[in-house]
């Protein structure tokens, strides 16, 4: 779910990066949707951790959940400070980071990581 949102936002960003534009409102809305999704994930993840009897490393799992919830908003602030191609790149990096962290989260949840 979150991977899909990251994918869509990343695609939007790449298009505008190629067109050499600063990050647009649509991107920030996309990042906002992503932010809501990772916040929901933070809550859902903690609840799921409390209920599961899987062999999940709790501390690591929660720290990843928190990190992934912080990345989009920090990325958005950084990119707002640089209204150029650079800002678009930063937002893209942030979205890519979220995607990367999501795969790690999945590894930890399935206890392979």
């Amino acid at each position: 779910m979150i991977l899909a949102i990251s994918g869509v936002v990343a695609l939007l960003l790449v298009v505008d990066l190629v067109r050499d534009r600063a990050a647009q409102d649509a991107h920030y809305i996309g990042a906002g949707v992503l932010q809501l999704a990772v916040l929901a994930q933070l809550v859902a993840g903690c609840v799921a951790l409390g209920r599961t009897d899987r062999d999940v490393e709790g501390t690591v799992f929660v720290s990843y959940l928190v990190t992934v919830a912080v990345v989009p908003v920090v990325g958005a602030f950084f990119s707002l400070a640089e209204r150029s191609r650079v800002g678009t790149t930063i937002l893209l990096l942030a979205v890519a980071t979220v995607a990367g962290l999501e795969t790690r989260l999945w590894d930890i949840w399935t206890a392979r990581g």
Binding site: V71, F78, E82, S84, V86, T89, I90, L93
Partner: peptide
């Protein structure tokens, strides 16, 4: 920390 430096700071921060 301006221009591309800001992008660099972001990645280094992560």
């Amino acid at each position: 920390a301006e221009g591309w430096g800001r992008a660099l700071v972001f990645v280094y921060g992560i």
